[in-house]
Amino acid sequence: TGEEYIAVGDFTAQQVGDLTFKKGEILLAIEKKPDGWWIAKDAKGNEGLVPRTYLEPYS
């Protein structure tokens, strides 16, 4: 299990392996990579890379 984050903006996948999401979606951070791209999972179970700058902790 990971930590929940809320998307603060829309993001469209730029390449294969990225995860597209919309502002307000809750994402589960699976792995926090030091380069600023995290592996996350959305509510539908889709998994991919997301930019850290689009996420804020969800409580």
Rank of each mutant, 00 (worst) to 15 (best):
T1K: 13
T1S: 13
T1L: 13
G2K: 13
G2P: 14
G2Q: 13
G2L: 14
G2E: 11
G2T: 11
G2R: 13
E3C: 12
E3G: 10
E3A: 10
E3H: 10
E3P: 08
E3K: 09
E4W: 15
E4R: 15
E4H: 14
E4S: 13
E4K: 14
E4Q: 15
Y5L: 04
Y5K: 00
I6G: 01
I6F: 06
I6E: 04
I6S: 03
I6P: 00
I6Y: 07
A7W: 01
A7P: 00
A7I: 02
A7R: 01
A7M: 02
A7D: 00
V8T: 11
V8L: 13
V8Y: 04
V8N: 10
V8C: 09
G9L: 15
G9C: 15
G9R: 15
G9E: 15
G9Y: 15
G9A: 15
G9H: 15
G9W: 15
D10Y: 05
D10K: 03
F11V: 05
F11D: 00
F11P: 00
F11L: 05
F11K: 03
F11Y: 14
F11G: 01
F11E: 00
F11R: 07
F11T: 02
T12M: 11
T12S: 09
T12D: 11
T12Q: 11
T12P: 06
A13C: 07
A13E: 04
A13T: 05
A13P: 06
A13S: 10
A13N: 04
Q14I: 13
Q14N: 10
Q14R: 15
Q14Y: 09
Q14L: 12
Q14W: 11
Q14C: 11
Q14K: 12
Q15H: 13
Q15E: 10
Q15G: 11
Q15V: 10
V16D: 14
V16P: 15
G17R: 05
G17F: 06
G17A: 05
D18I: 14
D18C: 15
D18T: 13
D18P: 03
D18W: 15
D18Y: 15
D18L: 14
D18K: 12
L19A: 01
L19K: 00
L19Q: 00
T20H: 06
T20C: 06
T20D: 07
T20G: 12
T20R: 04
T20W: 04
F21P: 00
K22E: 06
K22I: 07
K22C: 10
K22Q: 08
K22V: 09
K23V: 08
K23W: 05
K23G: 04
K23A: 09
K23M: 08
G24E: 02
G24M: 03
G24W: 05
E25L: 03
E25N: 07
E25V: 05
E25M: 08
E25R: 00
I26W: 07
I26R: 06
L27D: 00
L27C: 03
L27M: 07
L27W: 01
L27R: 00
L28W: 14
L28Y: 13
A29Q: 03
A29E: 02
A29N: 02
I30R: 04
I30N: 02
I30H: 03
E31W: 11
E31D: 12
E31Y: 12
E31I: 12
K32P: 05
K32A: 06
K32W: 06
K32G: 04
K32S: 05
K32V: 06
K33A: 09
K33W: 08
K33M: 10
K33L: 12
K33Q: 09
P34I: 10
P34N: 13
P34G: 12
P34K: 10
P34T: 11
P34V: 10
D35P: 02
D35I: 03
D35R: 03
D35S: 09
G36H: 05
G36R: 02
G36I: 04
G36T: 03
W37F: 09
W37N: 07
W37T: 06
W38F: 07
W38E: 01
W38K: 00
W38T: 01
I39D: 02
I39L: 14
I39Q: 06
I39H: 09
A40Q: 01
A40C: 15
A40E: 02
A40H: 02
A40G: 05
A40I: 07
K41C: 08
K41N: 03
K41V: 11
K41G: 03
D42Y: 00
D42L: 02
D42W: 00
D42S: 05
D42M: 00
D42C: 03
D42P: 00
A43H: 10
A43Y: 09
A43C: 12
K44T: 10
K44S: 11
K44G: 09
K44R: 12
K44F: 14
G45D: 05
G45K: 03
G45F: 03
G45P: 00
G45Q: 04
G45Y: 02
N46K: 09
N46Q: 10
N46A: 07
E47C: 14
E47Q: 14
E47G: 05
E47A: 09
E47T: 14
G48I: 03
G48R: 00
G48P: 00
G48N: 00
G48H: 02
G48W: 03
L49R: 15
L49H: 10
L49W: 13
L49N: 10
L49S: 10
L49I: 08
V50F: 01
V50I: 05
V50K: 00
V50Y: 01
V50H: 01
V50N: 01
P51T: 03
P51V: 04
P51N: 14
P51S: 07
P51L: 10
R52P: 15
R52A: 15
R52H: 15
R52L: 13
R52E: 15
R52S: 15
T53A: 14
T53F: 11
T53D: 15
T53E: 15
Y54D: 05
Y54H: 14
Y54N: 06
Y54F: 13
Y54M: 14
Y54T: 04
L55P: 01
L55T: 01
E56G: 05
E56S: 10
E56H: 10
E56D: 07
P57L: 12
P57F: 08
P57H: 08
P57I: 09
P57S: 08
P57N: 06
P57D: 05
P57W: 07
Y58P: 04
Y58G: 05
Y58A: 08
S59C: 11
S59N: 14
S59I: 14
S59Q: 13
S59G: 11
